[in-house]
């Protein structure tokens, strides 16, 4: 496929923000040049207030761009009629949907709006597409249920099904995983990934769920709080240190090796740890969380040795004193805290 055909959405020197009648426009991000291809899932990441939603709405044609050129599927967004645009691009928004008295089927069928005649009557083709959309996200069994009886995760899937029923090859979602529990988030991302790869759709979603985005996105658009965007493979961005630049702030540090964020604290005490395997990994996490440094050559205040009796982990610990044995980290830290208290008030 040529570069032209491959590109679903392209932004050239686009500025986004709010138009104001009396005052100067509020520019959220300026001179953005980006592209989204068919067959890829792109996550738009950034801190709250960076302008992710504004970019999503601008790109979807719901808000006007302040300047620059946006093309969707080869056509200038501004010259497309609302109906033509709706056939190329569908959205899932964060807007509350108070559509009670609607069955799931009823909501999904609203997506056929750009395709039906003025009466809104559904034909054979419409029904087939609605069924396909519901099956794709796994809500076909809910078709007759009332929308307001569903869980947040199910509702979000129904809204995605509605967007799919619109039969557009570009799908843009604003924070689709907010308010959804973790397993459901992973499932939603898997569904979107499959749609991008198997149906050759171009999918852009905004999120501030870094971990899941890193795992499932083909590419990332990383937006900093000044509205500038770095685009690329998650790994390339990590290597370039882009995450640290965008998200790092006082007290929060980007952990390069773990690929996640840590509470940044300068440790005032250190621990030494002996042992291997999963138990050692989790013990290390616990010590870090409790504020211990784990530098090998530091003067340690706490020593922990991990061993194993009949398949159960056992911790032996000493705070420069006698050794004690524990069967959980919780009891270990209770003892440590008691020791510390005793040490402070002899």
């Amino acid at each position: 496929m040529s570069e032209e055909l491959d590109t679903a959405v392209s932004l050239e020197g686009v500025s986004i923000g709010y138009e104001s009648r009396n005052e100067a426009n509020t520019v959220v991000g300026s001179d953005l040049s980006l592209s989204l291809k068919f067959g890829e899932l792109v996550c738009l990441l950034g801190p709250n207030g960076a302008g992710k939603s504004t970019l999503i709405r601008t790109l979807a044609g719901l808000d006007p761009a302040l300047s620059g050129k946006i093309k969707i599927d080869g056509s200038d967004l501004e010259t497309l009629s609302p109906n033509e645009r709706a056939r190329k691009l569908s959205v899932v928004l964060t807007d509350a949907v108070p559509a009670g008295l609607f069955t799931v089927y009823g909501i999904v069928s609203l997506g056929r709006h750009p395709h039906t005649r003025w009466t809104g009557e559904l034909g054979e083709e419409d029904r087939a597409r609605i069924n396909w959309a519901m099956e794709s996200v796994g809500v076909d069994s809910l078709a007759r249920r009332q929308f307001d009886e569903l869980s947040d995760g199910e509702r979000q899937k129904v809204m995605i099904a509605r967007a799919l029923a619109q039969e557009a090859s570009i799908l843009v979602l604003d924070e689709p995983t907010a308010f959804v529990d973790l397993p459901r988030r992973v499932e939603l991302m898997r569904i979107l990934q499959e749609l991008a790869h198997k149906e050759n759709m171009a999918i852009l979603l905004s999120s501030h769920d870094l971990e899941i985005s890193l795992r499932s996105a083909d590419r990332l658009w990383l937006m900093n709080d000044r509205g500038a965007i770095a685009a690329g493979l998650p790994e390339d961005l990590a290597i370039r240190g882009a995450f640290a630049e965008v998200f790092e702030s006082d007290g929060i540090g980007w952990d390069f090796e773990q690929g996640g964020f840590q509470l940044k604290r300068d440790p005032d005490r250190f621990a030494r740890i002996e042992g291997e395997g999963d138990v050692a990994v989790w013990t290390r996490k616990a010590l870090l969380r409790k504020g211990y440094g784990l530098d090998a050559d530091a003067e340690w205040a706490l020593e922990v040795i991990i061993s194993n009796i009949n398949g159960h982990p056992i911790w032996r610990a000493s705070a420069r004193g006698p050794w004690k044995t524990f069967d959980s980290l919780e009891t270990l830290f209770q003892w440590v805290e008691a020791q510390e208290k005793a040490g402070r008030s002899p």
Binding site: R57, R87, L93, H113
Partner: peptide, 17 residues
């Protein structure tokens, strides 16, 4: 048909053409 689309709010209505 437009009234139905408005049920989802004006933004969704706009996105549906």
């Amino acid at each position: 048909k437009t009234l139905d689309a408005f049920l989802l709010g004006e933004r969704y209505a706009q996105s549906m053409g």
